[in-house]
Amino acid sequence: MPDKIIAHIDGGSRGNPGPAAAGFLLEDSNGTQLRAKGCVLGRTTNNVAEYTGFVKALEAARSFKPEQLVVFSDSELLVKQINGQYRVKSELIKPLYEQAVDLLSGFKNWKVRHITRDKNKQADSLVNEALDAGHDIEARLKPVSKKEKPIRLGVLISGGGTTLINILKYINEDKLNAEVNVVISSRSTVTGIEKAKNAGLDVKIIRTKDYHDIDGFSKRIEAELVAAKVDLVIQGGWLCLWKIPYRYKNRVMNIHPALLPSFGGKGMWGHHVHEAVLNAGCKVSGCTVHFCTNEYDDGPIIIQRTCEVLNGDTPDTLAARVFEQECIAYPEAIGLFAAGRLSVEKGITKIKP
Results as ranks from 00 to 15, higher is better:
M253C: 06
L153F: 09
Y211R: 02
G200K: 10
W238C: 04
P257A: 10
D202M: 05
Y248H: 11
R207A: 08
I193M: 02
F217Q: 07
N120W: 14
L156E: 04
C240M: 11
V127A: 12
K204T: 05
A178D: 09
K195G: 12
I193V: 03
V180Q: 05
Q122K: 15
E148L: 10
I234P: 01
V180L: 01
A139N: 08
V144R: 15
E194M: 00
K229R: 15
T163C: 02
N166Q: 12
T162A: 14
V180G: 07
E194P: 00
N254F: 06
S158T: 02
V155I: 15
D213T: 10
D136L: 13
V144W: 09
I206F: 07
L260T: 13
R251M: 11
R207M: 13
V230T: 11
L260V: 12
E129A: 15
G192R: 01
D202K: 10
S158K: 05
A123K: 12
K149E: 15
D231R: 02
E148A: 15
V182C: 08
D210V: 04
E148I: 05
S185F: 03
K142P: 00
N254R: 07
K149G: 00
S145K: 12
A227R: 14
L168M: 14
A258C: 04
V203L: 00
P261N: 11
V226N: 05
H256T: 03
L156I: 03
N120D: 13
N128K: 07
K209D: 13
W242C: 09
I255M: 10
L176M: 09
